[in-house]
């Protein structure tokens, strides 16, 4: 019997921007090896929830625990330690524009993992090859396409071999083929690295293709209204969720 605490446990999380309530009373757990989808309509607070999970924004109330360790109530060292277990793929890629792709991936390796530059350079080349960008080491982010930026950013997110990966709208701005390719890459990552993956998306194809657990945030009631396997939710979830997952057709 496995009694280890879940990889991520969120309890009674309430998020606000100043006075404005974004979402309240969110409680859910993400288990080892899950591909957990955070879904919901535009502007419901999906990305804000992600920012709370990766330590960029402090909750108004509630807890976020990683393997039992509190992200926000602990000291800075605990938070940094948790953040270093996580890799984040931002919506816009967020590659550092003054560095080449290879330098982007090397920076966390040399600065955090204290690797020698020569080793980091080799590792960076391998990470780029994993996402299909071998040979692009010395390109600057402004010199490659949007889809390539996303993949390069994924390579950077994997720089420190994180055991939890966060994706913010991975398929936003990608054509269907690149988007499907990214989905395959996500599945591949889980299979090969055993990573736990949290994805914010409203792309239905992705939701069904990769998600095995999910959370639906509702913009009107400002809380979660369903959770579980998206395929099950599409058949037997609440009306709003069923409509969302079936593009309005029931």
């Amino acid at each position: 019997m496995n009694t280890a605490p879940p990889v991520i446990a969120v309890e009674e999380l309430t998020m606000r921007y100043g006075e404005r309530l974004i979402q309240r009373d969110l409680s859910f757990t993400v288990n080892q090896g899950d591909i957990f989808i955070i879904m919901g309509g535009s502007g419901c607070g999906k990305s804000t929830l992600l920012r709370h999970l990766i330590g960029l924004q402090e909750p108004a109330s509630g807890n976020v625990r990683f393997s039992g360790q509190d992200l926000w109530r602990g000291d800075d060292a605990t938070r940094t330690a948790i953040q270093r277990r996580c890799g984040v793929l931002f919506q816009s890629g967020a590659l550092w524009s003054s560095l080449t792709l290879s330098e982007n991936i090397m920076l966390p390796m040399t600065e955090i993992a204290a690797l020698k530059p020569a080793i980091a350079r080799e590792l960076a080349a391998v990470k780029l090859a994993l996402v299909g960008l071998a040979g692009f080491e010395d390109f600057y982010p402004s010199e490659i396409s949007g889809g390539m930026k996303k993949r390069a950013a994924l390579a950077r997110a994997m720089a420190l071999d994180p055991d939890i990966l966060f994706f913010d709208e991975p398929s936003a701005g990608l054509d269907p083929l690149s988007s499907a390719h990214l989905d395959e890459l996500i599945l591949e990552l889980r299979a090969s690295l055993g990573a736990t993956i949290v994805v914010v998306t409203h792309e239905l194809a992705s939701i069904f293709a990769i998600g095995n657990n999910s959370l639906f945030l509702d913009a009107d009631s400002k809380t979660m209204i369903a959770g579980g396997n998206p395929n099950t939710l599409a058949l037997s979830g609440p009306d709003t969720v069923r409509a969302f997952l079936n593009r309005g057709k029931s």
């Binding site: 270093r84 984040v88 931002f90 967020a94 550092w96 524009s97 600065e111 955090i112 950077r156």
Partner: peptide, 17 residues
């Protein structure tokens, strides 16, 4: 400011840099 818009600064933070 542009780095803030592109989430590049967030990327530094999430690495704990």
């Amino acid at each position: 400011g542009t780095m803030q818009v592109n989430e590049e600064i967030d990327a530094f933070r999430t690495f704990g840099l």
